[in-house]
Design a protein around this nucleic acid. Structure first.
Length: 423
RNA sequence: GGAGGAAUGGCAGAGUGGUCGAAUGCGGCGGUCUUGAAAACCGUUGUCCGUUCACGCGGACCGGGGGUUCGAAUCCCUCUUCCUCCGCCA
């Protein structure tokens, strides 16, 4: 969330900057500012009463030890009276703090100045494109047809054992998945990312830290008995590794990568977009996460984009990089680039990576800070993450684009991982 | 799952009701000494909020939450985590 200080400092411009993100509730900002004034008044009053009570208690202790029982008794009555006031004041302060927090979490991150206006994904800005469009044989097959024909992916078995959106990968299909994961991780570690294997279930505090809670609660699978959530992305556990930490500026940037399955309920999304591997409840993804100094976070964002671009072009997939418009930008993000690859048989662009700078929005929730050498006050760090890469749609595009009369060709970079060159 | 013990500052570790935000040691930072370094010595060293032009001042925090008390790191309840033993187990 935004810091109250930031909102105070930009009270005149913030509503306008949020408008681009389709947050048209200037009332919330006004309510935050007045609630914060209220909070400060209450704080001053509470602190004053607390100081008074502390002073009386201290005096009481001294008198009591001296044996001046009578004077002590007087003080005790005074303290009792003040104590009631302190309790009342503390309770009001606590309530105000909670109300303020409830308002604060409703405000999305402020978009970067370069974010274009727009309503939906149709208004996203094309940054650049690359790769060559494939030439398909006559009557090309979709990836779900190819998956079934070559016995790579079994959707029906998944339905039997779990439900729709939980495919079973078999044989060369499973091996191809493992090859992609290994190649991605190897490329990421070569680029300086530390490989992490995090837990796949997280607690409430972690969900809150990266912003999935409270606003995206319905998107996560929940283990109610133990009050845990299945991770929707490795971003959650890997970023939360650094919750409540103060890092040295010299440790920045922190660069981590993790492969994990991801679990998403995808409540409310049905229809033809969800066919095959296009949208799943469980899928595999390799994630990259950076924690960076605020003055260098946008350099890191570009570096991450370049890195992801090397991955997609290494697989010889036609791709394009889009900058998300205000209306399409996520709640917690300041700037996001989406990578889309072209799946030729479906004639569709599929999103395979989303690379974002959250600036200090997550860090403020996470209490993730760093200290400049010689400085006393720690500052909020910036967090960034991106997919490098999400598997199912990559697999879909590979199968569809590389189908030939002689079988499906495996990209060269994967040969040493798969042990086969065609399917 | 059962029985017992524990959780204190960057780390180690004292503190069982009253100037305790907390002894002491280590580490860090600054200084003295030194050609330089080490050693020694001196000083300093948590986070957050509020207030102040500033020096400063006030408040909260000793795993989390709640309670007892004029006053809680210290007593009580509860949750979490860790350790030891038993059981189960990939």
């Amino acid at each position: 969330m935004l810091t109250i200080q930031f909102i105070r400092d930009h009270r005149d411009t913030i509503a306008n900057r949020l408008r681009i993100k389709k947050f048209n509730q200037p009332g919330v900002i006004a309510a935050i500012l007045s609630k914060d004034d209220e909070r400060r008044e209450l704080q001053v009053e509470t602190n004053r009463l607390q100081a008074e009570l502390n002073r009386l208690s201290k005096e009481f202790g001294i008198l009591f030890r001296k044996g001046e029982k009578e004077k002590a008794g007087e003080l005790r009555m005074q303290s009792t009276a003040i104590k009631e006031k302190v309790e009342g004041s503390e309770r009001r302060l606590q309530e105000t703090l909670e109300e303020l927090n409830d308002l604060l979490v409703q405000v999305p991150n402020v978009p970067h100045v370069s974010v274009p206006e727009g309503e939906s994904s149709d208004d996203n800005r094309l940054i650049r494109e690359g790769g060559r469009m494939p030439e398909l044989p006559d009557q090309p097959l979709s990836h779900w047809e190819l998956g079934t024909r070559h016995d790579l992916i079994d959707f029906e078995l998944g339905v039997k054992i779990t439900g729709s959106g939980f495919p079973v990968y078999k044989g060369k299909g499973a091996r191809l998945q493992r090859a992609l994961i290994s190649w991605f991780l190897d490329m990421n570690t070569k680029a300086g990312y530390l490989e992490i294997q995090p837990p796949l279930l997280v607690n409430e505090a972690s969900g809150f830290g990266t912003g999935q809670l409270p606003d995206k609660e319905g998107q996560m699978y929940r283990v109610t008995d133990d009050n845990l959530y299945l991770i929707p992305t490795a971003e959650v556990p890997v970023t939360n590794l650094y919750r409540d930490m103060i890092l040295d500026a010299a440790d920045l940037p922190v660069k981590n990568t993790a492969y994990t399955p991801c679990f998403r309920r995808e409540a409310g999304s049905y229809g033809k977009d969800v066919r095959g591997l296009n949208r799943l409840h469980q899928f595999d993804k390799v994630e990259i996460v950076q924690i960076q100094h605020p003055s260098r976070s946008y350099e890191s964002l570009e570096e991450m984009v370049d890195h992801v671009e090397r991955l997609v072009s290494g697989l010889n997939l036609p791709y394009r990089i889009m900058q998300l418009c205000g209306g399409d930008l996520g709640f917690t993000s300041a700037l996001t680039y989406d990578f889309e690859v072209y799946a030729a048989a479906q004639d569709k662009w599929l999103e395979v990576s989303s690379v974002s700078n959250f600036e200090s929005y997550q860090a403020n929730r996470l209490k993730l800070r760093f200290r400049e050498p010689g400085e006393k006050k720690p500052l909020l760090a910036h967090t960034l993450n991106g997919s490098a890469l999400a598997l199912p749609r990559i697999l879909a595009a590979l199968l569809e684009n590389n189908q030939t009369r002689e079988g499906i060709l495996v990209p060269e970079v994967l040969h040493s991982y798969t042990g086969f060159e065609r399917i």
